[in-house]
Design a protein around this nucleic acid. Structure first.
Lengths: 218, 218
DNA sequence: TTGGAAGTCAAGGGTATCCTAATTATTGTA
DNA sequence: TACAATAATTAGGATACCCTTGACTTCCAA
């Protein structure tokens, strides 16, 4: 198994596990754009290598070792995002894509020194937590924007869809970037569309979108 | 052909072409640790793709397109070396290795912004020229240290063996890093071992080593 | 001009990854 | 509770890259 392929699988499984655990074979296949058969076979191999817990017909989850490797990758990915954003001036909308390849090409010493150079940031440009060097799984505090009630105020913590430039650009247009303060003005009864106030401007945002924005109620 | 494999070949051929052009199949095979047969087959494919000029039994050289791709890789490699050295504090002895993987993972916008961030450096930590954005082949001014005559003074321009940490550490121990000033005190008749003065200290250096150090006579 | 070195080609393997198609397990529901 | 629909797995191929070995061709230098 190539290092690279293994890492792609670990990342996919790790990410999916945030919402579904164990992760089904088909979720992985869909997310990676591969056939069910390929994933099934690969899960067997990852399982043999001790990175994934796989019970046939029962889905997959990361072992401790798999988890560690996943968090190490996430750490690298987000550190690069910070670098690309802060020093190279690449927008938060685009950093994900560029960091994707860099993370696999980063040796341990480089990752450590990079963290130090960046002054050990604890969130990426999308506001998501950067795993610490000890590779403990960071907790994702906050609730989704779609869960707020009318009248509640909140601050945007992070946006969990980090790889969709177009969507992130849309959010930039709404001033809904990490750190932004908002207040819920209205909540449509049928589809849950929100009217919120950001920077004293009223804006509408659909429930789908609101459900991938994590906020901290104030 | 995978992108990565192609790039490895282009880099190897490009580097060898500095001293031997066209490059023989066996040089490539030896340098990459592959069999003659594999290289022979791969050259045919690279040739089909228009990256390499390959006449059977006549060796290989890069086409204009191959050259451009080679220089783009070299540019990325050396830009990363500068970053790793200057900002992450990784010694010139070790940057090569770390930059090797990064160069293949760098998108065009990142490379451009990185160059800008670094203030468009024109040499890497080993003193070798960084190809400019227009991808013209840089000229390697200077002569080898082994070519100097007794009594001549010079400044170290660059060391052309960049991937041998141990050797570079040895040079650091001799204070023979890019920019260092030296003077040839003696030249042994049989094997060409040099005695040179660096920082007012006399040091011996073999001809092999002296032939990979480029200097500019003063 | 000829023998050895260098290079090529062909055959036969090995590994890794992916596919489609066929098969088997699980599950929701009538 | 049985059986279709769905999910997952296995089987069988395809491709890409690399290897070795051995036969052969080309080149060069003594």
């Amino acid at each position: 198994m190539s290092q690279r392929t293994t890492e792609e699988y670990l990342e996919t499984i790790g990410a999916l596990e945030e919402r579904e655990s164990p992760v089904s074979t088909s979720s992985i296949a869909q997310s990676m754009g591969l056939s069910l058969a390929s994933v099934s076979e690969m899960l067997r191999r990852l399982s043999e290598n001790g990175l994934v817990e796989h019970t046939p017909y029962g889905g997959a989850s990361l072992t401790d070792e798999g988890q560690r490797r996943f968090l190490r990758l996430t750490r690298r990915h987000r550190l690069w995002e910070v670098f690309l954003n802060r020093y190279l001036g690449i927008g938060w909308e685009d950093v994900f894509h560029h960091a994707c390849s860099l993370e696999h090409a980063t040796s341990d010493p480089v990752a450590d020194k990079l963290a130090e150079f960046l002054d050990n940031p604890d969130v990426c440009p999308h506001g998501s937590p950067i795993p610490e060097k000890n590779l403990k799984r960071p907790v994702n505090a906050g609730v989704t924007l779609s869960n707020l009630e009318i009248g509640q105020s909140a601050r945007v913590l992070n946006v969990i869809i980090e790889n969709n430039s177009e969507f992130l650009r849309y959010l930039t247009g709404l001033d809904l970037t990490p750190g932004a303060r908002l207040k819920v003005l209205e909540k449509a009864p049928y589809d849950g569309t929100l009217t919120i106030e950001v920077n004293n401007v009223a804006r509408a945002i659909g429930r789908e979108a609101a459900s991938v924005i994590m906020v901290k109620p104030l």
